[in-house]
Each structure stands twice: as structure tokens, then as C-alpha cells.
């Protein structure tokens, strides 16, 4: 395996058993999903609801057992959650009784980092996402965008090799969403983490990513891989460029099939 490959997914398949009115049936969600992500690459997965995007991300995170296929991160088979991966959740998953600082420090605490060190790293992560003045705020005192910044800071604080982001901006309003996209790119340009980003927004995927995997079908699989030819750092003016719009149209055509 090349050392440039951070994540390798081969022949991944996953089915769930669904019970309806006492009758059980098997619902295949993922079927033969195969792709690789290079180190420091930003890859987005876009697809319609129910195509298995979140199941795929949870499998890579080690939160979901797979029926067939393999997942490797940094050359090691994934058998459960690992310190080299950190997840950013769509609904933020913040502890409602804990302050921003405590929420950011939570991942470090679970990984056995000492109190003084985890507080120092949590403060640094909060500063990185522009929330250094909100260390003592509880989640309900923060806006949606600020809560997700805390979620991102928590993931960054453990210094993972791979950042797994499950529709992190899906529940934000459009204005906050765009500002968070720019914020994420700023952080990514600085740290160059490997990112697997799940979204149902074609524009978001194109704006953020080095590569876009389009998922579709039942069971879900990667039906198209596109590489946006957009120079970095990305700017909003690129969204009206010919390269962006033609790529967007191509993804929509793929999704319509």
C-alpha cells in the first residue's frame, strides 16, 4: 500500500434488518463501495438521502460493523473507533451540561490526557475556531454555527490524522453555512488534515473538496468520481466559474440517473 493513501475502502457492503408490522426484511444499504483518500486530501461524498452516506462514514469511524469488505486507515484495518480518526456530527453531539471548554476537552479526557494538558489544548482549539471568548458558555447559549465550531474544535483538539465530517453544516442556515465552509477551509489549509466530508449539497462539495465522490443506487455505491479543477485557496467567485458550473451540472446529471 502506498504511504500516500490515508483511507482505503474496498468492497464495503452493509445491510440492515428492518422490522415492519412484525415482519423482518433485509435492506441493503451499501454494496461494493471502493475508494481511496490520499493523505491531506479533502474528499466529499455527495448523494441523495438514504444512499448510505452516513452508514459509510460511521463504518470508517468504526462505529458500525460491516458485512463485507475492508477499511484501512493509515494502513491498519479498522475494527472500531481509533485515535487517528475524529468525527464531527451533524447534530453537534455536544454534552448539554458541559461548557464549550469541557466539550472540546471531552475527547482528550476520554483518551486519557491529563487535566492541565487537555485544558490547554482545548483552549487552543477553541481559539482556532474563533470561540476563545466563549469557553464557559453552555451549548444552549450558543448559536447553531457556534455549536458546530465547538464540535469541530473537539475533533481538532485530539489531533487526528483523518477528520470524518457527517453533514456538519446540514442543520445550519445558508448564511452561517457559507461562513462555516470558509472557516473550515481556512483551518484545513493550515493543518492539511485528511478529510472525508459527507454532504447532500453539490455546491458545498465542489467548493470544499479536492475530489467529489457521487453516491447513488440501491444499495449505495460510488457511481462517479470528479476532481474540481479549482485553484486553492478557494474563493466564492469561483462558484460562478465555468469549471464550477459545468462540474455541478455533471453531478446533477449523475444524480438524476
Amino acid at each position: 500500500m502506498s504511504t500516500d493513501v490515508a483511507v482505503r475502502v474496498s468492497g464495503l457492503a452493509k445491510s440492515f434488518v428492518r422490522e415492519t408490522r412484525g415482519r423482518a426484511s433485509v435492506v441493503p444499504v451499501l454494496g461494493d463501495v471502493t475508494f481511496e483518500i490520499a493523505r491531506a486530501e479533502f474528499v466529499s461524498i455527495v448523494g441523495p438521502s438514504g444512499c448510505g452516506k452516513t452508514s459509510l462514514l460511521r463504518s470508517v469511524a468504526g462505529l458500525l460493523d460491516v458485512d463485507a469488505g475492508t477499511i484501512e486507515v493509515d494502513g491498519k484495518a479498522v475494527t472500531g473507533p481509533g485515535r487517528e480518526r475524529a468525527v464531527v456530527f451533524q447534530d453537534f453531539a455536544l454534552l448539554p451540561w458541559a461548557s464549550s471548554l469541557d466539550n472540546v476537552a471531552f475527547g482528550l479526557k476520554l483518551q486519557g490526557v491529563g487535566r492541565a494538558e487537555r485544558r490547554r489544548r482545548a483552549r487552543a482549539a477553541l481559539e482556532m475556531v474563533g470561540l476563545d471568548g466563549f469557553a464557559d458558555a453552555l451549548p444552549h447559549e450558543l448559536s447553531g454555527g457556534m455549536r458546530q465550531r465547538v464540535g469541530i474544535a473537539r475533533a481538532l483538539s485530539v489531533d487526528p490524522d483523518v477528520l470524518l465530517m457527517d453533514e456538519p453544516f446540514g442543520s445550519l442556515d445558508e448564511i452561517t453555512r457559507r461562513s462555516m465552509q470558509e472557516e473550515l477551509l481556512r483551518i484545513w489549509e493550515r493543518d492539511k488534515k485528511t478529510v472525508l466530508f459527507i454532504t447532500h449539497s453539490v455546491e458545498e462539495a465542489l467548493f470544499l473538496s479536492d475530489r467529489v465522490l457521487v453516491m447513488g443506487g440501491k444499495p449505495g455505491r460510488v457511481v462517479e468520481t470528479l476532481t474540481p479543477e479549482l485553484p486553492r485557496p478557494r474563493t466564492r467567485s469561483q462558484e460562478s466559474s465555468e469549471a464550477f458550473t459545468s462540474m455541478r451540472d455533471k453531478i446533477w446529471e449523475t444524480l438524476a440517473c
Binding site: R58, A61, G62, L63, P81, G82, R83, R85, A86, V87, F89, A93, L95, F106, G107, L110, Q111, V158
Partner: peptide
């Protein structure tokens, strides 16, 4: 919250 806790080992 449970998934998040498990994801951080």
C-alpha cells in the same frame, strides 16, 4: 452522545 463518546475511544 453515545456515538460521539465511542468515536473518541
Amino acid at each position: 452522545l453515545v456515538s460521539m463518546t465511542r468515536s473518541y475511544c
